[in-house]
Design a protein around this nucleic acid. Structure first.
Lengths: 344, 344
DNA sequence: GTGAAAGCGCTAACAA
DNA sequence: TTGTTAGCGCTTTCAC
């Protein structure tokens, strides 16, 4: 197990040429099974691992994929779950991961194209995984296309363009959650919308409206308030919502962080949950277990989605299977203790 | 700005040899200022970025640093902050970051040495940053030494060995926090210890005992309970602590997650915070803002520590400044609303 | 202070 | 099915 073992050492030990070793390593055809096995034995015996630099230089590929995300998103554990899923697949396929948080709120969106370009040229990554809200920023998508870099978008808000992506239908899931509340007898239900730049989250609002309309329930302006995904914005919205004369009996926040903010305010105001007020969230993040009572929410298979997305990206890099480039995943309703029958 | 621009293009444009360009790029001496400037202009004009593969192949370095961490730690936002700090420095110094979460709880600690070795050989990283609890695992440290890989340890529990590390003195900070509680008039103070494999966290307990002893306060067995860093373990400990006849008037948990668990139980049992019970945490993590009332805690400059550690590692890789290899940082007490005067 | 030549370890193109 | 050769874009070594 030596770091200086080269392809030549393996070739010598197996009694073949280096090209044959290369074929075995890269799983190319046209090697006799017996030869292949002999080479594999030599590889195992020497603990040979191909030198990525040499490989990269010769093949003009880096075997590196980039994960591009909004630095602000790193406040939640979402991005860590994505990293985990991406890494799982990368290891299986022999790729390495380079992470790249972007700070385009500070630097202005105009700098984004430049920053992406500079990063691509410097790091030589072969392909890119875009997470929300970058997965909906056309400037990011177009810049990568211009650089001819394969990309896959994770949970984009629009997936009509035909560009490869992995998503779950937030509209349907939000509708399910709303129907759950309606079935519990709630009629005055407030909705807290998420950040408008985060398109997938906007679909959650549409799903809410779908269910309310289908049930013939009233949606006045007051029942939808504008949050920005964070705990603090949930606090702010809840204060406003609960100060109204005929306060709702249920609040559906489009992120768990906001729902946790709502619960905090509700406790302070003396509401019992779910006795006086039901609260629902979305994302099934860490915080959903850490509030009391535990939060009813929607769980997306983030890990799995990231893994699948990475697989699709690597397929692209290998030049195959371009057909199945859009994958839809199912989210599920997680019923916990923060939702209950509407008070009489 | 073209990805195919090579050192030769720059040399041609500047009218020098490729070796001179190489000297400028690598900030080597022995280039006349005027020549240097001409080369730099050419680099700028062409948007030249050296090809990392070619560089790596020729120089036997990868310009990659690895961040090794315990996958379980990724549940908190600690690791994301570390990543941020590491990346900041990497970008400045022209290095890229490879992240590597380890799962040694599942696979058994014996597999760890092998996994590290395999990872190093495959990825060719030049050096490694170890975060807790890996920074205290001698099997990890020794394996890297055997592979002759420079390493830097972040927040280790023991820093006597002389190996490079960046840490903050948890014992002193925990003592400060305990003194704060004592000054508020608390006499019965419970402490919730963290995971015993996480040595830095164990020092927090020592600091607690220092302060209690110095103040002449009684520490019976019941006032220290064993948690495991998580919210759930905080819940469990709090249930036990608060069921005693003479329950404490303050609880100091050695992580914010556990403190949040304590607060959740306290609310359920009808305690008012800080009226009936003061609660203190450690880490100043996200959750400290998301509980009500906001949590008094200790803030470590995680971002900065990670940045400095990365700088020290890169210094090692460049073969200089081996002297300043241990850096101690200051933590600070963050007073919020969860601690108050002891009830009479 | 500058440049020419060799070669890092691999893959691509072609030959056998 | 297997091997030979050239060269990827840089750094290293050594000559000038």
């Amino acid at each position: 197990m030596d770091i200086t073992t080269t392809i030549e050492d393996v070739a010598n030990l197996a009694g073949v040429s280096i090209k044959t070793v290369s074929r075995v390593v890269n799983m190319e055809p046209n090697v006799r099974p017996a030869t292949r096995e002999r080479v594999q034995d030599a590889i195992r015996e020497l603990g040979y691992q191909p030198n990525p630099s040499a490989r990269g230089l010769a093949s003009k590929r880096s075997y590196l994929v980039g994960l591009f995300y909004d630095d602000l998103m790193a406040e939640s554990t979402y991005i860590v779950n994505v990293q985990r899923g991406v890494l799982t697949r990368c290891r299986k396929e022999g790729y390495e991961l380079l992470i790249h948080p972007f700070n385009y709120h500070q630097n202005g969106i105009n700098g984004l194209a430049e920053e992406i370009t500079a990063n691509i040229i410097k790091s030589r990554i072969d392909g890119v995984i875009l997470t929300p809200p970058l997965s909906d920023l056309s400037i990011a998508i177009e810049t990568l296309k211009r650089l001819d870099k394969p990309q896959i978008r994770l949970s984009p808000g629009h997936h009509e363009s035909g560009s490869p992506c992995v998503y779950s239908d937030d509209r349907i899931a939000a509708r399910l959650m709303t129907e759950h509340l309606i079935q519990l007898g709630h009629k005055r239900i407030a909705f807290i919308a998420g950040h408008s730049g985060h398109l997938a989250i906007v679909h959650r609002q549409t799903g809410f409206i779908d269910a309310m309309t289908a049930a013939g329930l009233n949606i006045d302006n007051a029942s939808v308030s504008q949050g920005s995904n964070t705990f603090e914005s949930g606090v702010k919205c809840a204060r406003e919502i609960l100060s109204h004369e005929r306060a709702p009996t249920a609040i559906f926040a489009s992120t768990d962080e906001m729902a946790a903010g709502v619960m905090s305010v509700a406790h302070q105001l003396g509401y019992s949950i779910p006795g006086d007020l039901s609260v629902a969230g979305y994302d099934n993040s860490q915080i959903a277990h850490q509030v009391w009572p535990a939060l009813t929410t929607i769980a997306q298979p983030v890990n799995e989605m990231a893994e699948i997305a990475t697989g699709l990206l690597i397929d692209q890099l290998r030049g195959g299977k371009k057909s199945i480039s859009q994958v839809a995943m199912q989210s599920e309703l997680v019923l916990r203790d923060s939702t209950g029958p509407a008070p009489c």
